[in-house]
Design a protein around this nucleic acid. Sequence first.
DNA 1: ATGTAC
Length: 475
Amino acid sequence: MEVVLVEEGPYRFRIEQRDQMRVPGVVFASQALVPQVAGDRALEQVANVATLPGIVRASFAMPDVHWGYGFPIGGVAATDIAEGGVISPGGVGFDISCGVRLLAAGVERAELGHDRLQRLMDILDVTIPRGMGRGGLWKLSGSEEMDELLVGGARYAVEHGHGVPRDLERCEDYGVLDGALPGQVSRRAVQRGIDQVGSLGSGNHFLEVQAVDRIDDPDTAAVFGLRADQVCVMIHCGSRGLGHQVCTDHVHAMDEALHRYRISVPDRQLACTPVDSPPGRDYLGAMAAAANYGRANRQLLSEAARRAFVTAAGVGLDLVYDISHNMAKLETHEIDGVSRHLCVHRKGATRALPPGDTGLPPDLARAGQPVLIPGTMGTASYVMVGLPGNDAFHSACHGAGRVWSRHHALRMVRGEQLRGELEARGIAVRPSSWRGLAEEAPRAYKDVDEVAAATEGAGLARIVARLVPLGVVKG
DNA sequence: ATGTAC
């Protein structure tokens, strides 16, 4: 299916509704990003998503959109539960609750200095588990303890000494997604996850030591606990093998159940069933469990970073925020003046609640929800904030967005050379493999500055601060 | 993203 973009406003393009589409597509992008967006098969996926039963308003694409499994990464789609709206595992992604956590250190960049930064990076290098397989920081005793973690998320980790209660106030949903059904997480998924709690994984996952390079919105930055030149830690990771297995299991189940609900989809990877159906409820319960695993995972990694900072610099780390960018959530939104109960899929997209939203903790309520945008290695990252008037169900982008395939990046970049280039720019690099480093070269991604500018231009969120890397621990 | 393939 050929897809044509029609400009319908600044930073906003439309894919006209046609054929089996039930709603139009809406793509948020700057003129500079359009060629990259339009040259990607992702737009065809945006149109495919628009055919799903019960979809309302539009099939949305964020400025970092790129091709994914069934749904594009950087896609947002909401379905009306009472109207037979569906849930699709492909609309969440294989890395359930992949997300970002930002912590702020009690030290400025200049105070930390070169030698202590190197010492810090060396400690992180040997204490942060990462790479394919391998172990994690927390060995669970067995499936009973795993079930408790799947229900309790980051709260369960904190209750067991891995963090402080204040951390939970700065986690989306206070660190726990309700509705987890550990019984819907297969034995195989549990086996894959049991020794991976507190591990980065690989691919674009990382732990970076960063500095606040620029403050664009001083009032909001102050509420978030950020100031110029402050040292920070950004952690980007997900639910490891457990989330992957949950997705695999439930894609299979839905693929087999599809015909019973008389659903036809243009791409088998869009396998789905009604939210209000046994397979739909089973998946949502398993997804919530995997989401809680991902949140506990980031909590454990935060504790390792805190120990490294105390040892190398004698300072603590305060949690700024923890946000997921691969999730589906049951939310209430107004559609054509009527309040509707929706299932909102965000895949490679975050929630971005506006100021005053009841979903925010009291100390963030007047500012709005922090939106964390990780860049790629050697580039900037952004802290943004949710705004009123975001008609993409209060959603924003999640990162730079890949433009080169991993395969192409491997042909173009050598890991050893890339490390040299980054070190020459003063960025300490602690890779887990040369291949992984090459695959994640900055050139393989869109320009995160452009993505953040487009996200702001489109009115999805506002830029609060820009962060730059001092050192990267690569998954 | 992922015991980088069922």
